[in-house]
Design a protein around this nucleic acid. Structure first.
Lengths: 196, 196
DNA sequence: TTAGCATGTGAATATAAGTTCACATGAGGT
DNA sequence: ACCTCATGTGAACTTATATTCACATGCTAA
């Protein structure tokens, strides 16, 4: 039998296992059996620590919210110049989803959007904060003359995030056949041409 | 009993019903029962016209490919100025997914990407052509001086599509709480500020 | 007209997935 | 040492879903 550990530990393990399953097999394949397999424990033990699938989803949503927002807020609050902050946030985001492909897949899964509204609302709130954070950095960049005047900070933030998001989607659609990092770097440099 | 119609007609009806189900309930809820219900026929009759779910998916992928590419190719082949073409393609795309939210949801579903590779490959090819078409229009725009020199046509095309895609995703995530058309218009005007 | 065949359907079947249950095990407090 | 309770698990249960089947129906061509 598996070594015994506290619920606190097991919950973290299960959330991580869930993220791994989404990353490798997608939300559709996110079954209790798959999670249990990835976490190396029995299905019944999952239920010892979570009341059901919904609670696991909530836990994952919270984890993702913290992971995405935590980093961005720290960078935005730093003392570097806006454009430098923007670049750091951009590539942090790319690296995060490159390391955890399950993150965008979960956040933008229509199963979540249409089948778990409460969780979707939680995520929408976090994404909204994230967009605002980036919007603030861009506004500062415009104010300091690093980005061209006349730009709409919010729309420019959405454009940047769309670049990442769309590339991640194409990456999965194309069966990971191109280099995610290289592709986003090209987009970033083109963005610099566009925005300053 | 339902009025009898030829397989050719029924196939179209079933594909349309499938697209409606994806649009209203997502890929996760795309069951034979849901399709049959939406098409107003029995489940067994679905199997009279399609060998199974995979064949329905293939049919939908083909329909989507034609819908998206057909329009864009026509516009790109026209005689207007590049920037005008670009704007028309952009808003045609927005209108298309606004009218058929199932299109992006199906194309970017990880169930398709990870569970139906053959269909994903078909879609990837179409999307690739679509990107190339837009890239060509942007390149022409640069050559004719409507868009600023130094822009990378391909990356700019990806940026534009990312704007639409990301907005569509946020739209679903936010439970359709904002106006898709208005939001994309703001993005388009900001793009004009960025790109010329 | 009518035989044949394409089309339509309720019911049955098989499999998968979420959840519960009865029982096992062992770490930590007394 | 041992009692208790949190933790762990195989098996059973329930529901959902894809698919098949036996049978019904009515268009169409000769």
């Amino acid at each position: 039998m598996l070594e015994k550990k506290s619920t606190r530990i097991r919950k973290e393990e299960i959330i991580q296992a869930t993220l791994e399953v989404v990353g490798s097999k997608g939300v559709r394949a996110l079954t209790i059996a798959a999670i249990a397999d990835s976490a190396g424990m029995s299905e019944a033990n999952i239920y010892r620590h979570f009341s059901g699938k919904d609670e696991i989803y909530s836990g994952l949503a919270e984890f993702i919210g913290n992971a995405v927002m935590g980093k961005a807020a720290t960078i935005a609050g730093g003392s570097r110049k806006p454009l430098e902050k923007l670049e750091t946030i951009f590539f942090s985001h790319v690296d995060l989803i490159s390391e955890h492909p399950g993150i965008p897949r979960f956040v933008f899964s229509d199963d979540i959007h249409l089948g778990h509204r409460k969780i979707a609302d939680t995520l929408a709130l976090r994404i909204g904060n994230y967009i605002e954070t980036i919007t603030g950095v861009i506004a500062a960049g415009i104010a300091e003359g690093e980005l061209r005047p006349g730009l709409s900070p919010r729309e420019t933030a959405l454009t940047l995030l769309g670049m990442i998001q769309f590339t991640a989607l194409r990456w999965t659609l194309n069966n990971a056949a191109f280099d995610l990092r290289a592709e986003t770097e090209k987009l970033w440099y083109n963005f610099l041409t566009l925005a300053r």
